[in-house]
């Protein structure tokens, strides 16, 4: 009687658990029979930060697709990105090494040249960020990695992004000689890609070069060009950074160039264009300071004469 009752209770509980299990998930089980569905699922989960499940979706996408298909290549790229970027600081090296295999395979596959280019860039980027915060990258090797991507995909946005990184990383030591070379390379980039995705993206690096080379006139000129060509996000105009740009141009013109006319123009622009701006008080003071300084110098000049 006792053993029967125990067995009976056990059976009832097991049956109950079995009955309730499909409900307990509270969502229908996904039946991903197409690789495209699995890829979509993978990226949706990636966006949600659910990396282990996202990786499983990409594994499924790869399994469902033919090895030489575009879907297979995309699954490899997605899996690589998921492994690499699921990383926290301490695991970046291990995860980068794991991800590399997938990026390498996706980068040499030919079904989707677009994904091949982005995979090659991802491969170079994993090398760049390898070691997290505790290792200073071997910048020469990192730059070479980026340059390889550009040599292979010079007309693709991924290749051009890689090239800009390769040029920019010349400036990590703030050495004037490297800044001179970088300027030449940025000129060449602009000539080669006047209307591609990254057109105009050379300017922040040009500005850094002029800063390192202590060429304030050119620095200010490029800052003005950057401001004039600033692409305001029409959906988010509140990101307007012009007041900061005005302040930067005005203060550099005042203190580095001594061009008060230019400084006045941009200090005044802050006051004229912004009702509420943190730099307004200081801009007003700067205008008064320059007037005062000019008056004092004029008095001194008259005294000399």
């Amino acid at each position: 009687m006792r053993s029967w009752s125990r067995r009976g209770i056990g059976m009832v509980l097991t049956a109950g658990v079995a009955a309730v299990l499909p409900l307990a998930g509270c969502s229908p089980a996904h039946s991903l029979s197409k690789p495209t569905d699995a890829l979509t699922e993978g990226w949706d989960l990636f966006r949600l930060g659910d990396y282990p499940v996202a990786e499983a979706a990409f594994v499924r996408a790869a399994a469902l697709s033919k090895p030489d298909s575009a879907e297979h290549q995309r699954a490899l790229y997605g899996r690589g990105m998921t492994i690499w970027l699921s990383t926290a600081g301490g695991t970046i090296t291990r995860n980068s090494q794991r991800a590399e295999t997938f990026f390498e395979r996706a980068a040499v596959a030919t079904a989707d040249p677009n994904i091949a280019a982005w995979s090659a860039l991802a491969l170079a980027r994993t090398f760049h960020l390898m070691g997290g915060g505790d290792v200073v990258p071997d910048y020469a090797a990192v730059r070479e990695g980026y340059n390889r991507v550009y040599r292979r995909f010079p007309q693709h946005a991924a290749g051009q992004e890689a090239r800009l990184y390769a040029i920019a990383l010349r400036l990590v030591d703030s050495k004037p000689a490297e800044a001179e070379i970088a300027l030449t390379e940025l000129d060449a980039f602009d000539r080669a890609h006047p209307s591609d995705l990254h057109a105009g993206n050379t300017q922040p690096f040009r500005a850094m070069c002029y800063e390192i080379l202590n060429r304030p006139a050119e620095l200010i000129k490029i800052k003005i060009t950057m401001m004039e060509q600033y692409q305001l996000d029409t959906l988010a105009p509140q990101t307007d950074d012009r007041a900061r740009q005005c302040w930067e141009i005005a203060s550099l013109a005042e203190f580095r160039l001594g061009d008060f006319a230019l400084a006045r123009k941009y200090y005044r622009m802050i006051l004229a264009e912004y009702d509420v701006e943190v730099r307004s008080y200081a801009a007003r003071r700067a205008l008064a300071r320059m007037d005062r300084m000019e008056a004092e110098l004029a008095r001194a000049e008259k005294g000399v004469k």
Binding site: S251, R256, L257, G258, R268, D291, K302
Partner: peptide, 28 residues
């Protein structure tokens, strides 16, 4: 935010050039 020697020289030169010219426009 300190004037560089080049900036100071430039300011002095401009002041010399400007002497006798009308005052700057009013501040908004």
């Amino acid at each position: 935010y300190a004037y560089s020697p080049e900036a100071l020289a430039n300011i002095r030169r401009q002041v010399r050039e400007k002497m006798g010219e009308p005052a700057a426009p009013p501040i908004p």
